[in-house]
């Protein structure tokens, strides 16, 4: 995020936002572990904890509004993402799925919360870490469930195929399970957050730039801001959707690893 001051100092030229705007300087000195995304992650953990502790502290049969809100999210993840997809062993994975969903959702929504306005997952490393955790979980579950040899055999050798064809197919299976799955799940989350934030910057900074221009340009700038607001609502949709898709894919992969035959 660039400051308005440097923006003015650049003179009349409009410099469109770029990927450089995502590299934020450290907050304390030059310790690179104190950048805004890191604090946002810590902050998200704190507010999620407070919210769900408060929501479940005085649990009663007739729920308060807060308890109802917390339980709706939990029930949604448990039933729609856990039970429907993973099957009868789903309860073991609900804590992970729930944590994942709420964590990603909160960090995504940071992108449109005033004063914060930075989606943590638009820095790719955060998305990679989540992808790697999911990758480790679903392979571990599969290996524990089937034993390592049967699990690998199920993945690598599709039944009912003439043997020479395996030369063609097995590399694709390996690439799918070991590279494409963790990579696409991370990239999908990252790219959506990155592009969304870039889009918002273009409309808001563009509107600001027009406002500083000639009178004719000043008149058009409200349209840019209006679009910025519309995009903000659209981004909210994307942010929820991406948290959902990441969790859904994790559940699908776990369900696939537990399935008895592919």
């Amino acid at each position: 995020m660039r400051s308005m001051f440097s923006f003015r100092a650049e003179g009349g030229e409009f410099i469109p936002p770029s990927s450089k705007d995502f590299v934020l300087p450290p907050i304390f000195g030059d310790n690179e572990f104190t950048t805004k995304p890191i604090f946002l992650v810590i902050f998200s953990v704190i507010i999620i904890s407070i919210f769900f502790i408060a929501a479940s502290r005085k649990a009663s049969i007739v729920p308060s509004k807060l308890q109802f809100a917390g339980e709706s999210v939990y029930a949604y993840v448990r039933n729609d993402l856990g039970k429907d997809i993973i099957g009868h062993e789903f309860m073991r994975f609900v804590p992970y799925l729930f944590t994942l969903f709420v964590f990603i959702l909160t960090n995504n929504i940071f992108g449109i919360v005033p004063l914060i306005q930075f989606p943590t997952m638009s820095r790719i490393s955060f998305a990679y870490v989540l992808g790697i955790i999911t990758f480790a979980v679903f392979h571990y579950v599969g290996i524990r469930h089937h034993g390592i040899f049967k699990y690998l055999k199920d993945i690598l050798f599709m039944p009912g195929v003439p043997k020479p064809v395996y030369i063609l197919l097995t590399p694709i299976e390996i690439a799918t399970y070991l590279i494409v799955r963790p990579l696409t799940i991370s990239l999908r989350l990252f790219a959506n957050m990155f592009a969304g934030h870039l889009l918002l910057m273009i409309f808001i900074l563009g509107g600001h730039h027009l406002l500083e221009g000639a009178i004719g340009l000043k008149l058009v700038s409200p349209f840019a801001f209006a679009f910025g607001i519309a995009i903000t609502f659209f981004e909210f949709l994307v942010q929820c959707l991406q948290a959902y898709i990441f969790t859904l894919l994790t559940a699908l992969y776990i369900g696939g690893a537990l399935a008895d035959e592919h």
Binding site: D84, I85, L168, P171, I172, A175, T176, I179, V180, R181, T184, L248, L249, L252, G255, G256
Partner: peptide
């Protein structure tokens, strides 16, 4: 529909990794 949803993502994975590997 949930099972179909899973199939869709798996198919997407194959269609990416096939050309990626042999290409």
């Amino acid at each position: 529909s949930r099972i179909n949803e899973g199939a869709a993502w798996t198919i997407l994975g194959y269609l990416i990794s096939g050309p990626l590997f042999w290409g």
